[in-house]
Structures are given as C-alpha cells and as structure tokens.
Design a protein around this nucleic acid. Structure first.
Length: 118
RNA sequence: UGGGCUGGCCGGGCGACCGCGUCGUCUCCUCACGGAGGCGCCGAGGAAGGUCCGGGCUCCACAGGGCGAGGUGGUGGGUAACACCCACCCGAGGUGACUCGCGGGACAGUGCCACAGAAAACAGACCGCCUCCCGGCUCGCCGGGCGGUAAGGGUGAAACGGUGGUGCAAGAGACCACCAGCGACCCGGGCGACCGGGUCGGCUCGGCAAACCCCACCUGGAGCAAGGUCAAGAAGCCCGGAGUCCUCGGACACCGGGCGCGCGCGCGUCUGAGGGCUGCCCGCCCGAGUGCGCGGGUAGACCGCUGGAGGCUGUCGGCAACGGCAGCCGUAGAUGGAUGGUCGCCCCCGGGACGCCCGCAAGGGCCCCCGGGACAGAACCCGGCCUACAGGCCAGCCCGUCCG
RNA sequence: GCCCCGGUACUCCAACGGCAGAGAGAGUGGUCUCAAACACCAUCCAGUGUGGGUUCGAAUCCCACCCGGGGCA
C-alpha cells in the first residue's frame, strides 16, 4: 500500500503523465511514466507519485476497488526504484478484473522494466 | 419417513507475515505551519445497490382564496411519516397449511367496444314462427301484403336473466314455482369494511375509469456540491462552441455562459425601483436598493460529519404490527476516496484415485490429491419498497405413508 | 445528489388500443450491358429490450427490472 505523499491526486498530473509520459502496455494494464527533465523539475525533492485509472469497463464498484488495491500494493514495491519526482499512472484494462495477483504483478514488472530502460 | 407452506437468522472461522485510514498517546525533526516513526482502540452490508416512496436536518419562502398539476384508493389500527407494516372484510386459487389482488364510483356527464353478426347498448328485428287478407294451386301447399311476436338460428370476448310449467294463433316475467342478480325497508351481530335473517318492489338494468372524468384524502421549493466560517484575490480564471498557426504537442485571438469585486448608465427610496407567494390568477406581503452594460478575480482549507424515530435483554399492554417501563452497550467517517495482499490449518460443496475398514451385495466411512465458496463497497442520516445472492441454521404448521 | 429521454428488420426510422406491423437504404435474384454502375421488377429480413398486469384484444395503457444516451448543481 502507498502512503499519502506518494498518491497522485490532481487531474492535471494525470493528464501530463498520460500524454507526455513513456508508455508500455500489456494484456491487463497500461503504464505511463513521466520523468520531468531538469528544466521542468522546479524542486527535485518532490516524491515519486503514483496514480491509478480503473474505468467502469473493468467491472462494478467492488471489482474496481479490488483491482485498484492490488495495483496499489504492487506499485509500492517499485517506488524506491523510480527516479525522483517521477509521475506514474497505471491504467487498468478490462482483463485485469479476472487476473490473479501474480499475473498483475508480472505485467507491472514487465511494463515498468520496458519504460525504465530508456 | 416423503412432499409442501410460512416466519426468523447467518453471510465462512482461527492464526502468521507485510500494509492502509480515523482517533488517542509517546518520541524525533522543524522558528513555525507541518512532517516522520512507535504503541493502543476502532474500521462496510443484508442488501452499503437501484434511487421507487416517506421523514429528519439545512437554506429560501410562507395573510388568504380560486383554477390547475401530481399522488393515494376495501375497513380498522401501527408509525415521525409513507405508496410501508399488522389484523380483519370481500373476490380468486389450492385437498390443506396458505397464497394472490392499482380492491372507491359505469342511474354526474363525455367517449370507446375493431372483425364477425340482423342487431353492440336502446332497444330494435335479418332468417324464422303465427292470426288475418289477396292471388295461385298438383289443394299435405306456394307467392305477396297489413300486422303480432322474440321460443329457435348463427356470429362474437360480450346478445337484454336460467330451468320447469301455465298460457297463447304463435309467443313473451304475460303469469306461477325455485334459483341468480338489483333496489328499498326492517331485525340481529360488528368501531368499521361487511356478515346472517326477513318482508316488499319493478320483475332485470353489458363491459372499459392502468379512457377523459367524478368522489374522498394528501402535497411549498430545493437539496450536505444544502448551508456556514476562514484564507487567497483589484488580477484575467473556468466551462461550452467554432477558427487560425504549427515543430502535431500545443500556442493565439473570437463568440456565449458562470461567480466575488470595481466602474458607468437607467429606474427608484413610502406618490414604491425591484422581488416573493417556485405552475397561473386575484389578492397580499417584503422592500432600499435594483436592472443593464463594460472590465474581468477565486474555485483552497475547515465546520456540517456522525449519539440516532440507536441496539440488546427483561417485563407489562395488545391477536399482531407496535407501544410503555427498567437495566445494559457505545458501534466506520474516507475525499483520486482507507477497511487490503500473500500464506497455513479448519469448515462446506464438487470431482478423482492407491490403500484400509464395515457389508453377501448395492453402497457407506477413513486417508490423499485437485478445483470451488455467492451477490456485492459506506460518502449527511434514518424508516420502507424493489432488485441481486454460493451455501447453511432454527422454529411453527399442512398433506401423505409406515409403525405403535 | 437530483432529473429527463430512448429501446421496433442488418441500418435509419413509421405505426388512432383492432388483420400483429409502413417506408427508405443495405442484402439476394432477375431485366438492361461485352462487363459494370444507374434505372426498373421481384424477393428476403421483425414478433416490437425482459417479465408481469389491465383489456375481448397491448408495439401502444400501467408496474417492476435490464440496456443505451443526455442534462443540472
């Protein structure tokens, strides 16, 4: 689980991450990672922030909550490996509703690996 | 023992590790705001759901009357209130326990009843039946006419009471008996809906109001993004539309709208601007500001925010719903939205199979492996309704079978 | 949180409570053409989102549910 400072909670940051960040997808989810450059980062001390997008196509409220909780728990493992002041948005696809915790973890690892190579 | 009816209840349990949120407390960092960490308590539901009703709460409004609109619809209770619940009545279904019913009014009026049929609502008469008259005749009849009838025909969802008899030219509630139905009155029972009995009457009168409508009763508007406090802010913000440029990500200017404030103009301050009575009118009330245009700021934090028509137990009243009294309990408050993740054991269900046990057998039990365990996530709070739901527990009752 | 529309053939859409359903496009088969397009003719495709009720009779009226779209704060 993520503590409060690591939560992404304003829609502008979501838009920036989704539009300008590096993207990688899998069957169950899509990852957007935005790492601000030197000129963009006003204060380099801001923490890594993570947000989630789980649309109604995934399922009803209980299902969406479960997916979101699993993703939050998984994303916690990656916070320390991300560069400072990075913004990560994880978008859940409809197949994520039926995926197990291990499958979601594998997909998140693979996508984050691809995004972080560059 | 098999099948069924009704009511109530549960919604996996225990443990380990890693985590999240509110509150409390301690420690540390910071000038401060605040932040980090440790410990402790608590942390989704029976439907939290759909948003179909009813309330609480908040703001606005509120002399009264009329028209309109919407809702409810057997009776009597319960309740803060209801379209909910309970009991009863009536009707329908079931052998029964029991279930189901938008269950007022069709002599206040208007409207509709397709097709078929002679005729579809007020009686009328197509084929028939019959007296009489005229004509014909093969004289048992045939044709025509003035009339009388409504038993029979067949259509339809529905055809103007049913059966039997008297009666008649033929017939008919024309008359009689019984039955069904309608109305009036009387007696008895019930708070009442209504029920039981009797007398009399005309002797009979279709359905649809989830068609307009009539009757009785009820209904002010909005909603916690209500509403309030503080901060920021004399500066160009947000939303929608369409356009130009372009490095296709954005930038720029235009039009319309939104809110605090500033400026200008108009109309006004008791001879009344404007507003309200949230559908309209009369009428009434409030009232010192208000309408328009131009410029164009902020959209953050906190309160509201959880103790309430609260729950449990006992007792009393009541057929019951429910109510009175006493005692005990203290129970989520997030805001990109906490209550989770991964395992182990147990429980339940399904499948498989080595072995073991019981049994003549069908089969049953133990152990092992695999898979599964629903519907679904609080967002101001309650009372209901409706809808979804794996599996399970308890109680009462009905019908059948067997044994005594 | 509050509220409003809509659901009929493959598609777009009509249908006073009355034969259960019109039209256009698309499709199919013909005519025309060397072949096609166009045009013309014929034909096929629905049981009206689901369930229940009122009625003699329901796409239509009423109730509940499902799905889709939209608006306001």
């Amino acid at each position: 689980m993520l503590t409060a400072p690591h939560r992404l909670r304003d829609s502008e940051s979501f838009r920036v991450a989704v539009r300008r960040g590096r993207r990688s997808g899998s069957r169950t989810l899509v990852v957007h990672l935005f790492t601000p450059g030197v000129e963009d980062a006003g204060d380099s001390s801001s923490p890594v922030r993570v947000g989630f997008v789980v649309s109604k196509a995934v399922g009803n409220a209980a299902t969406r909550n479960r997916v979101k909780r699993r993703l939050r728990h998984l994303a916690r493992e990656h916070v320390s490996s991300l560069p400072g002041s990075a913004v990560l948005v994880v978008r859940a696809l409809p197949d994520s509703a039926a995926a197990t915790y291990a499958e979601l973890g594998a997909d998140l690892d693979r996508c984050l690996g691809r995004v972080l190579v560059a």
